[in-house]
């Protein structure tokens, strides 16, 4: 299905486009980190150590007023003295208010983000692409109805819609055992991976429309190709034509959109977590929310997961741009929004 020309274009874009390399490196690194989190993370991200709360990341230090009670002349006095707390290699990215290791939390947060990003996009595709293809291929009433509905969906801000849906359905999660931990390879790490089911469902439901629109636009143009007419003249059923011809020939822009949507969904997940609608506490968005109140004293608690989000989203978008340029130079900006 991948023609030699496609491969050539990919190579050329790879050679000429250093940003693509940056993107791929970022994404690959993020995926590796997420998969092998139990080995990479120095601590269990949930284990608390209140004594070590709010330790600064490497290269920074903080000063704190330490108070102690002393008996002076038989009277208890509260003594306040200023102490400087230096970062330690024990917690290279510092700790949060509960003394949890930020590095471990960011590493584990990648799991949540990528899981939601990947599965959210997958489900959004599974909903949107068939609807779009059917609408574009059949045109007429079905198309009219579906696309008006899609317009209505697009008119809602996706975050508002998502919040409403999570509020309606609660915060269901699935837990699957972490294989590395189950095999005893990474003792002391969290035993299960929490998949925020509702969040995945919700992001899929608010983003499928994009896939439907692109798929419809593609189907509209592919259906006019003579090979589609030829297949119909051979007696092929509509299902056969859509599956065999329309889908494969529409796939490129859909996949490109997919990569970009992963990034958008990661952002959406963070926003939901930040607002407290996530099902797990191991999430970049959740950490940002945690650090929000402490920005003045412990800025890193919110900033470090924020940085992780930025890097991931940039990486994925760069990969998406690379794919877009290489696979379909004609697809500028918002591809194939049908007229």
């Amino acid at each position: 299905m991948v023609s030699p020309r496609t491969v050539r274009n990919l190579k050329r874009e790879w050679r000429d486009n250093w940003l693509a390399k940056v993107g791929v490196v970022l994404v690959v690194a993020m995926v590796l980190v997420a998969v092998f989190a139990p080995f990479i993370a120095p601590y269990n991200p949930r284990s608390q150590s209140l004594d070590d709360n709010r330790l600064p990341p490497m290269g920074f230090s903080k000063t704190e007023n330490q108070t102690s009670s002393e008996f002076v002349d038989g009277e208890a006095q509260v003594v306040s003295e200023e102490v400087t707390i230096n970062a330690t290699w024990d917690h290279p990215l510092g700790t949060n208010q509960l003394g949890q290791d930020m590095l471990s939390r960011v590493i584990y947060g990648a799991r949540t983000s990528l899981l939601v990003g990947f599965f959210g996009t997958l489900f959004a595709m599974l909903i949107g692409v068939p609807i779009g293809l059917v609408a574009g291929y059949s045109r007429g009433r079905v198309d009219d109805a579906l696309m008006r509905f899609a317009d209505v969906m697009l008119a809602f801000p996706s975050l508002v819609l998502a919040v409403a849906l999570v509020g309606l359905w609660g915060r269901a999660t699935f837990r699957i055992p972490d294989p590395f931990v189950a095999l005893g390879l990474a003792p002391g790490m969290p035993g299960s991976v929490v998949i925020p089911g509702t969040v995945i469902a919700v992001v899929a439901l608010v983003t499928w429309v994009w896939f439907a629109r692109v798929a419809r636009g593609e189907a509209l143009s592919v259906r006019e190709e003579e090979y589609v007419k030829a297949a119909r003249s051979l007696g092929a059923s509509d299902r056969f034509v859509v599956w065999k011809h329309v889908l494969p020939n529409s796939l490129t822009p859909i996949l490109v959109l997919g990569t970009i949507q992963i990034a958008a969904i990661i952002l959406l997940e963070s926003a939901l977590s930040f607002l407290g609608f996530s099902g797990t506490t191991l999430s970049w968005g959740f950490d940002i929310a945690q650090g929000r109140d402490d920005l003045a004293t412990a800025w890193w608690v919110a900033t470090i997961p924020g940085l992780a989000i930025v890097l991931t989203v940039i990486g994925i978008n760069l990969v998406g741009d690379w794919l877009r340029d290489a696979l379909d130079p004609g697809l500028g900006g918002e591809g194939g929004s049908g007229a």
Partner: peptide, 22 residues
Amino acid sequence: LKSFRRRAQVVFQDPFSSLDPR
């Protein structure tokens, strides 16, 4: 109709668009 499709065929004008590139 399916058996009619067997017996009646069509060849199109545009040799570029009438074959699925994939």
